[in-house]
Design a protein around this nucleic acid. Structure first.
Lengths: 150, 150
DNA sequence: TATTGTTATACTCTATAACTATA
DNA sequence: TATAGTTATAGAGTATAACAATA
C-alpha cells in the first residue's frame, strides 16, 4: 500500500456517482431477490402486469424501455411458472393481453415486500427524508427522457 | 392506444428510479463522448491515472470495481493511442506504474469538459441546488459499499 | 404499408479459471 | 504461499435483421 487514491474529481460527476450508486443498489436487489429468481427487468415487468391487467407485450416494452425480442423470453418464463396468462387482445388481433394468475398475484406480493426491504437495506446510510428526496430527484431525471421522446 | 400504463408503484422504489435515471444519464454520456471513443469505465480509468500518477492496474481495478482481466484491454488501448506510459513499479516488481503522456493529459482535459457538459445536459430538469443534493446523496449510497467491504 | 410478436443472431459488458513472474 | 498482470473463455444483457399474422 502506497498513497490513497484520489477520486475527488470523479465524485463531482453526476454520472459517475449515479452509476456507482446504482450498481450498489442493484447488487443488493439481485442478492435479496435471488430466492424469487427475479432480476430488475423481470421484477418490473411482473409488477406492471399486476397493476395493469390486459397490458400488451409492446406496452410493457415501451414503458420499461426493453426491446421486444428481449421480452419474449421473460413472458415465456412467466407463463411456464404459472404466473401469467396470455389472451388475444379484444382491441387488436395481433396483440396478446397479459394478466397475473392467482398464483402470480401471491408471488409478486411477496416479491414486492422483499424489493422494498432490499431498497431500505441498500439505502441504510440515508435518513427517511433523504430517501424520499433522492427518489424524487432520480424520478425527475428519467422523466426528462420520457418527455423528450414523446 | 387504450389506457395509460400505471407505473406509480415502481416509482416508489429507489432501485427502479436509480436504474432508469442512470440509464438516462449514461446514455447522454456515451452519446456526447462518442467523439472521444470513451465509455464510463475507460473515461474513469483515464481520469484516475491523470490524478494519480504511478497508480497500478490493481489499484485502478479496486477503486473502480473492475475485474483485472477486463482492465487489460483498456490499458492496452490507452497505450496504443499514446495516452499512457507503463513503467515497472519502484515498489513492487510485479506491478506496473501508470502515467499519462503529455498527449494523454491534453486529451483527458478536453474529455473532462465534455463529460461535465453531458452531466449538465442529462440533468437539465434539475436546479443547481438539486444537482448538488442528488450528487451528495448518491455518493452517500455507494460509499456504504466501500465501508462495508473495508 | 405499418405494427405485434417472434426467431435467430451479433455485440458488449461482466465473470471465472488458469497461467507466469515476482513477492 | 500469496499477489500482479495476463490469456482464454463463458455468461449476462442488449442490439439488429427478418419473418408471419394482423391492422
Amino acid at each position: 500500500m502506497t498513497e490513497p487514491i484520489n477520486t475527488q474529481y470523479l465524485e463531482t460527476l453526476l454520472g459517475y456517482n449515479a452509476r456507482r450508486a446504482t450498481l450498489h443498489i442493484v447488487g443488493h436487489f439481485v442478492h435479496r431477490m435471488a430466492e424469487f429468481e427475479l432480476k430488475p427487468a423481470t421484477f418490473s415487468a411482473l409488477c406492471l402486469i399486476g397493476r395493469n391487467p390486459g397490458i400488451t407485450s409492446r406496452q410493457l416494452c415501451q414503458t420499461l424501455n426493453i426491446l421486444p425480442p428481449n421480452m419474449v423470453g421473460f413472458l415465456k418464463e412467466f407463463e411456464h411458472r404459472g404466473w401469467i396468462t396470455r389472451a388475444p387482445s379484444p382491441f387488436d388481433g395481433r396483440a396478446t393481453s397479459l394478466s397475473l394468475t392467482a398464483q402470480g398475484k401471491k408471488f409478486i406480493q411477496r416479491a414486492e415486500k422483499a424489493a422494498q426491504a432490499a431498497d431500505q437495506h441498500a439505502a441504510q446510510a440515508l435518513s427517511p427524508t433523504e430517501f424520499k428526496t433522492l427518489t424524487r430527484l432520480l424520478k425527475k431525471i428519467h422523466h426528462t427522457a420520457a418527455i423528450a421522446s414523446a
